[in-house]
Design a binder for these strands. Sequence first.
DNA 1: GATGAATGAGCTTTCATTCAT
DNA 2: TATGAATGAAAGCTCATTCAT
Lengths: 215, 215, 215, 215
Amino acid sequence: MVAKRVPKRTSRAKDPERTKSNIIDVATAEFAERGLSGARVDRIAERTQTSKRMLYYYFGDKEGLYRAVLLSYYERLRSSETALDLTHQAPLAALRALVEFTFDYHMKHASIVRLVMVENIHKGRHVAKLPSVTPINSTILDSMADIIRRGAEQGVLRAELNAFDLYTTIAALCFFNVSNRYTFRAIFRHDMGDSKEAAKRRISIWDVVHRYVRT
Amino acid sequence: MVAKRVPKRTSRAKDPERTKSNIIDVATAEFAERGLSGARVDRIAERTQTSKRMLYYYFGDKEGLYRAVLLSYYERLRSSETALDLTHQAPLAALRALVEFTFDYHMKHASIVRLVMVENIHKGRHVAKLPSVTPINSTILDSMADIIRRGAEQGVLRAELNAFDLYTTIAALCFFNVSNRYTFRAIFRHDMGDSKEAAKRRISIWDVVHRYVRT
Amino acid sequence: MVAKRVPKRTSRAKDPERTKSNIIDVATAEFAERGLSGARVDRIAERTQTSKRMLYYYFGDKEGLYRAVLLSYYERLRSSETALDLTHQAPLAALRALVEFTFDYHMKHASIVRLVMVENIHKGRHVAKLPSVTPINSTILDSMADIIRRGAEQGVLRAELNAFDLYTTIAALCFFNVSNRYTFRAIFRHDMGDSKEAAKRRISIWDVVHRYVRT
Amino acid sequence: MVAKRVPKRTSRAKDPERTKSNIIDVATAEFAERGLSGARVDRIAERTQTSKRMLYYYFGDKEGLYRAVLLSYYERLRSSETALDLTHQAPLAALRALVEFTFDYHMKHASIVRLVMVENIHKGRHVAKLPSVTPINSTILDSMADIIRRGAEQGVLRAELNAFDLYTTIAALCFFNVSNRYTFRAIFRHDMGDSKEAAKRRISIWDVVHRYVRT
DNA sequence: GATGAATGAGCTTTCATTCAT
DNA sequence: TATGAATGAAAGCTCATTCAT
């Protein structure tokens, strides 16, 4: 009377790391595209090399998978920022590099912008559960502070500048270009995603920042 | 255990407009809080003065209700902006008024910011179906252009300024403060929603804009 | 992209009480047969006049349904016991009536015995959540005490008898005959469910009780 | 996030018997606690010194393990009963010893009582598959018959007593105290597991039996 | 013998929507 | 117009079991 469950085998590769990162990649796309509640576990599983069962095996539940996606994003962002190596450039050049990198990074990785939006819709409930995220990200503020200090010493940047405030300004200008693209297109018939428009906006943003920081 | 059939309605006021706006208010909160797929029709109906049936009666389906919510938002935003009456103020004063209004409006109506985020997650699919939205919103660009023209004439604003670009800058800076509040708090331990922080940021944003536009 | 869910109709009777009690009947059988975790919601739904969805509509979840089943059992047991009307019979006759009723009731309603076993396996976690059960059941102890008091006054029952203790004895003897039937059959090749065996046991149990209570 | 492959085994003692009895101990607890369908193979494996594979290696499947648990219980019960050595005691003393042993054994080994309940829920389907159980257990009936015969000869026990019937009475009274503990607690606010209550009940049960058997 | 990774079937639950009254 | 009852489809998740090493 107790139904025996006999799994049929299909024989697949046994590389946990590969399996996990494959799942995360697919999940990133789905969560970025549809949000947390809009995402479908089945759809993620389908596009994966593995079965749905493995999502649960490795990540516990849908939310656990979502959290893993968030973490993986922040880790990648940090690596990219670190690679910029701002400390060895002249203050203004470093700042410009940071602005342009930030702009380009957001434009290129739209799905990440979307993920951050999704997470804000959820009031940051899930990032808050990733303990490793804070230290990862505050390094960017250190870089910012370093640029300002050196710039002030050399007389090319205003000494009153605040690192967090300046970073917020840059982030806001770059993020918005991607985040609000669709409503802006609908409302103003202006496509911020168009590459020509984007190029102009990139220059414009540097202009805004430059005029704000210079002495 | 047997639920006796006791009508829960307190007011049987058959006022369609009242009923509809009540539904929209409740729905706005729900959609802003949970997004389109996270929102629950049952939850909306529960918090309404009416029954679930009415919700379908007036708005067709969940998406129709969501669209109605979006439209209602844009209409209210327009009214508020119109009330500013920028044309009769000196260019710089008008610009500052607009910046501060935009900042305050977003801060005060966080649920609207969230709604816009939700709509962008859905790639603007639903605003696009609201034909009346475009004309509603492009008036703000006209105001912007008017300020720039007058400012340039009076020599207080740079003539090269572009209306759309400038408005985007302002919108980005103000929107971001609300939209990315939660991830910033988790990542930088900085609460952009705190009123003291907000007051400082408000000044800072005007500073950014001012330095950008002045001659 | 948002899949519209359009229910197809089959047109069915609209009698909530009927629907609910139908579900409870079917569920009683399933839970008694397989226990809480062994029971299948699908199987219950299948044998019902309604759909699976209604189980959740009325009872919340599987456990809620199980609780409703338990409650319904205790309510029916109470009615039956009350119908005995022990107070108007002579003490010994009343006691014998109670013993025989208890024996017969357990024999006839084996599924209820099984339900009580299931609930004890779960350490009474679910009955504990049924607030109305205690008052329902303690009336039997009152009857018991009344019989003992009257019996002692009339000199036909020992005065030292304790109501709870005596009831436990009766319950134990009657319950066991049904509850442990299967292991006894396997171990002793004796079928306590056989009607001849049962008839003998019924007499025997009254004999045990009688010898215990008489002066 | 990457689980490094560190073997958790502390003792690699390849002692099959030891391994098997370890598994059975853990499984006994799980099956007694949750029943057959409520038990989780994963949970059992976790609490074992070995891996899940071994569990299948030695017992075939979940049901095989359950059967092994049942068998192990009946074997232990027989040893204990045999150790009582009732044949060399005076009839009444022997009977009392048996009653008190039975009571104490059930109280002490509640998990065994639960296991028997579980098995009865499953209608004895699994004990029935254990061929060795019948002979094991009928020895207790032989002892019973022996006591009655000797007691009747000596004029201290009623000659009409039936071994099976008497044993059933004793078993019922002792078993119930453990088996129905939780529902009784919920219903009558009486804890049959409390040691004071149990001591009183132990005396009471002997009283019941004694009055039943004496001449 | 021993272990982590993998599997498919099936389980409980939820959701937007519509019918009967 | 209004409302509780009802619905099918599908969503998230769990389970006993087996493979590769």
